[in-house]
């Protein structure tokens, strides 16, 4: 039995974790039902396009939410940090170790939780709950925030891998 999972020359340490939020999926489905009712009631006075287009957008939105909030698998280690969504591990985002400038654990307030995948030109966020969360700062300035079951262990494996590379 190893005394420390991240110690020793020749040793390779990896962290894997899976997070899911049925609450996020259920709330998005509930919102989708409300939006469908709204689309149908507004569409009855307009053309078919006014019904089909909002319904299509809602379907895409709900599908994305279900995939990105129902199962988030994170892997941290010598290959960097990888996030896989959904049951089939797709879509996925990979951040190689060389791209990760800093890895830290932050205390995410509940009002900043994204409840699924959120992308903006400077940030990628996939958070499903508040509290301790992994935050990566990439060399291009992008900030990646991800919920994992044990953020300290994920950050430790990234830092250990970076320290090995620097040696």
């Amino acid at each position: 039995m190893n005394t420390s999972p991240f110690a020793g020359d020749g040793a390779l340490a990896v962290y894997t974790g899976r997070t899911m939020s049925w609450a996020a999926v259920a709330s998005s489905c509930f919102s989708a039902v409300l939006l469908v009712i709204l689309a149908l009631s507004s569409g009855s006075s307009g053309g078919a396009l006014l019904v089909v287009l909002p319904l299509l957008l809602i379907a895409i939105g709900v599908l994305l939410e279900v995939v990105t909030a129902s199962s988030v698998r994170a892997t941290a280690g010598p290959n960097g940090f990888t996030i896989r969504w959904g049951w089939f591990g797709w879509p996925r985002c990979s951040y190689p170790l060389e791209q990760i400038e800093r890895a830290e654990v932050i205390d995410l307030p509940w009002w900043r939780v994204s409840w699924g995948l959120w992308w903006s030109p400077k940030r990628t966020s996939c958070t499903l709950r508040g509290g301790p969360t992994v935050r990566l700062t990439l060399s291009n300035g992008r900030i990646v925030t991800v919920t994992v079951p044990e953020p300290a262990a994920a950050v430790a494996s990234i830092q250990a891998a970076k320290a090995r590379c620097d040696r």
Binding site: P5, F6, G10, L12, A13, V14, Y15, T16, G17, S157
Partner: peptide, 10 residues
């Protein structure tokens, strides 16, 4: 879950 393996181990 933490995984620690050593590729040089016997």
């Amino acid at each position: 879950m933490r995984w620690a393996i050593d590729h040089t181990s016997r």
